[in-house]
């Protein structure tokens, strides 16, 4: 049975690549948006500052799991581009849902970074990097929920495989194998984190 599951590695790995794509895009776009919010809050730009604080609060408080359904039901399923009807892929909706919590997080972190630098406390960049990488890991974990709206990613593909074979042990093995993919990435991240932290200690 294990060979049977391993034979699907390409299929599942392809799904995992979509998880990583969702996570990377959400982190990249969310960080840029959050950095803008954080900078506005730091410089106390009149009028804008209160709006940036509210936006940060909104992004921070609303669960990505709710946003996922929000995007799935409120955004159109198809859009018209030059007269042709194009289906909006669900992974794009999942990415949009994950951008919000990342922006809330990045807003707080970049505000902290700017304040630390302003107060001339050392290691601000490393503090930011460590928190950012920990959050990246959380976002990768959250990308697995995209399957609930039907997005094509590793958990959705695992469910697809399982539905073809009527055996609880097969299901268990598939799910455990999928979790190995996540664990492996998690290990790589915590390795990177240790290196960054050591560098921070050395600098200090």
């Amino acid at each position: 049975m294990i060979e049977q599951v391993l034979a699907q590695s390409r299929y599942l790995g392809g799904g995992f690549a979509i998880n990583l794509l969702i996570s990377i895009l959400a982190m990249a776009i969310g960080t840029v948006l959050g950095a803008v919010l954080g900078a506005i809050r730091f410089h106390r730009l009149t009028g804008l500052s209160a709006a940036a604080r509210l936006a940060t609060n909104l992004c921070r408080n609303v669960p990505s799991f709710v946003l996922l359904f929000y995007m799935a039901s409120m955004l159109p399923a198809e859009i018209e581009v030059n007269g042709a009807i194009v289906v909006v892929p669900l992974w794009i909706k999942a990415t949009l849902a994950l951008i919000f919590p990342v922006a809330g997080f990045a807003s707080d972190q970049s505000l902290g970074y700017l304040r630390q630098r302003h107060a001339q406390i050392g290691g601000a960049a490393e503090t930011f990097a460590v928190a950012w990488m920990q959050y990246f890991l959380i976002v990768i974990m959250a990308s697995a929920t995209a399957s609930v709206i039907g997005a094509d990613e590793i958990v959705g593909r695992a469910n697809n495989l399982i539905s073809r074979v009527d055996d609880p042990y097969f299901m268990l093995v598939v799910y455990l194998y999928v979790s190995v993919w996540f664990l492996a990435v998690g290990m790589i991240f915590s390795g990177l984190l240790k290196v960054t932290m050591r560098r921070r200690v050395e600098k200090a």
Binding site: L137, I140, M141, A142, S143, A144, T145, S147, V148, V155, N159, Y175, V178, S179, F182, L183, V185, G186, M187
Partner: peptide, 9 residues
Amino acid sequence: MTPPILQLY
């Protein structure tokens, strides 16, 4: 390091 939704499944 395992997504909670996967743990639930």
